[in-house]
Design a protein around this nucleic acid. Sequence first.
DNA 1: CATGGCGGTTCCCTATTTGTAACCGGGGTT
DNA 2: AACCCCGGTTACAAATAGGGAACCGCCATG
Lengths: 121, 121
Amino acid sequence: MLDNAQCPDCKRINEVLSRVGDRWSVLVVIYLARYGTMRFNELKRTLGISQRMLSLTLKELERDGLVNRTYHPTIPPKVEYNLTEMGQSFREPVSALGYWALENLNEIDAARQAYDKTVAK
Amino acid sequence: MLDNAQCPDCKRINEVLSRVGDRWSVLVVIYLARYGTMRFNELKRTLGISQRMLSLTLKELERDGLVNRTYHPTIPPKVEYNLTEMGQSFREPVSALGYWALENLNEIDAARQAYDKTVAK
DNA sequence: CATGGCGGTTCCCTATTTGTAACCGGGGTT
DNA sequence: AACCCCGGTTACAAATAGGGAACCGCCATG
């Protein structure tokens, strides 16, 4: 399976990216960076994510130290999420990726169509 | 499932990230950016990826117009991969992400341990 | 009294991802 | 003859991700 002469960083980069690199995490970070502080259902409505996945994603992000969770025991309860310092530092590479994605979506679609045409005849 | 008032960009960002955002694609792009041109088994050995996943990943990257595939019908066959222009432009946000991952891996691990200690007692 | 919102958790089920192993042709090496 | 390399493809199995729906306490509203 694993070959012998691997790069030393690969495994570690891979580890981090598999933690924070899924698309829900990325979207949550993008929107927390953009709006500063958001509540649970606010994120849910904005992102179009299921309650379950949002809960899991936020828990993971909190565990990884990227997101702060603040619980206000009011009625009704109010839970606010915002980025930690590390989360802020993550914002830069992530939003760079997001912007790239937006800028190149059309070109990717075109490349796909061209590729499919040459292959699938 | 999906709520009503979604952000317009979410779906599109999501689309692109789900295409190019998996960790093998990211690693392939990072290493092609670093070394310019690489052969199939060279990538395989370097990245510690299975033959099957590398094949699938490269095919997707080629389809999305990020990677060029050059087949030399020599004996033994030689297939070289390098980044297209769009792949080059992808390099910046991606390597920023890779560097961030390397720089913050330790802090993430520490945050995890701290979190697990407070919760799982 | 029923309903709804908030912020979740839990169960169930399916779909996608990923790994493992075998195989392919075509040739070289021992 | 037996094995290895290159660059894959295919079949199968296992793990994981992800959605949907139901439920929770607590209170307000109608």
